[in-house]
């Protein structure tokens, strides 16, 4: 049987974490190709709906990333991300999707290594956990 290949959606903000991911790329740091990056202008733009829809469409994990608290390009929008993340995490746990499948990380534009490490860790963890209950792989 083919090894389970998780699909991971990562939301990155234009000013910090996307630049961080870019740095990981141009510095040729190796990380698994399971992550699909979606660029948003700010982590405050990440509607809880985006996360739920990703799971509904079969993502095995969702990563929410943004600027460090205090560094937000839009002053305090990532505080909103944090609040939303807290209730989303609670909801994902209640739904039985597994709260480990949702992760919030603050990554600055200089932290390419942190981004690569985060992806590596998540892929390892999700491979151990197996596919999400909503994944089409489970449905078949």
């Amino acid at each position: 049987m083919k090894e389970f290949d998780p699909k991971i959606v990562a939301f990155c903000c234009n000013w910090c974490s996307y630049a961080g991911a870019d740095l990981a790329g141009v510095s040729r740091m190796q990380y698994p190709p399971n992550v699909r990056i979606i660029k948003v202008m700010c982590s405050g733009r990440i509607d809880p709906l985006f996360v739920l829809m990703s799971f509904l469409e079969g993502a095995d994990a969702v990563l929410v990333t943004g600027c460090h608290i205090g560094d937000c390009h839009y002053i305090d929008a990532n505080h909103k991300t944090k609040n939303r993340f807290e209730f989303l995490k609670e909801m994902i746990a209640e739904l039985g999707i597994g709260e480990e499948r949702l992760r919030l990380e603050w990554i600055s534009a200089t932290e390419g290594e942190k981004f690569a490490d985060m992806v590596k860790e998540t892929v390892e963890k999700i491979k151990k956990m197996g596919p999400s209950p909503l994944s089409p792989k489970v449905m078949q």
Partner: peptide, 23 residues
């Protein structure tokens, strides 16, 4: 509420889901 509640319902339509709702 950004469609969160209707997505929740659509997620619940999946028969494989094992919820943890008795906390």
């Amino acid at each position: 509420h950004g469609g969160v509640l209707s997505s929740l319902m659509r997620i619940m339509g999946n028969p494989n889901l094992k919820q943890d709702r008795l906390g």
